[in-house]
């Protein structure tokens, strides 16, 4: 009998499965237990299966990372709605930060940010976020 992927606890465990342990048909599950109405459950409370890409990361794709400056943000949610990678964490209509595990560094959030100066800016991947915040530019004069 195939190992039930729902019982697999970690990503590493999946990698070691033999042909005899995988689910027939290569079906994958999103959660380890039933979630009655998923839209009512925020991601931090979901019983994600290790087979859910939420549990994986693509942060290493980035060359530059978006850094978020709370002091300037007006919580307009443009970054949230246009982020292709569900990497803008927003709760109760407030922008909280960037999910770096899932952010591929596309820079859309920075482009769509309407504040002046912007509340999100791209910085080199290796730079410390506090250092980046210290380097934040001043308000740009309208040309």
């Amino acid at each position: 009998m195939a190992k039930d992927l729902k019982e697999v606890k970690s990503i590493d465990e999946i990698k070691d499965l033999g042909w005899n342990e995988i689910i027939p048909g290569a079906s994958l599950f999103s959660f380890t237990e039933p979630v009655e109405n998923v839209v009512e459950v925020p991601e931090e409370e979901r019983p994600y299966a290790p087979t859910n890409s939420h549990e994986w990361q693509v942060g290493d794709w980035r060359v530059e990372k978006p850094v978020y400056n709370r002091d300037l943000c007006i919580d307009c949610q443009f970054c949230w709605v246009f982020c292709p990678d569900i990497s803008i964490l927003s709760r109760d209509k407030k922008m909280i930060g960037v999910i770096y595990e899932h952010c591929k560094g596309c820079g859309i959030c920075v482009e769509v940010c309407p504040t002046n100066p912007k509340s999100l800016l791209m910085f080199p991947e290796h730079m410390d976020n506090n250092e980046a915040l210290n380097m934040w530019p001043k308000k740009e004069e309208k040309k």
């Binding site: 925020p42 991601e43 549990e55 693509v58 999910i99 899932h102 952010c103 591929k104 560094g105």
Partner: peptide
């Protein structure tokens, strides 16, 4: 709208900016 809890997950393999 931003109160929505997404049912599509990150760490998919689409190009950045797709």
């Amino acid at each position: 709208f931003s109160l929505s809890n997404d049912r599509f997950e990150g760490a998919n393999l689409m190009c950045p900016g797709c």
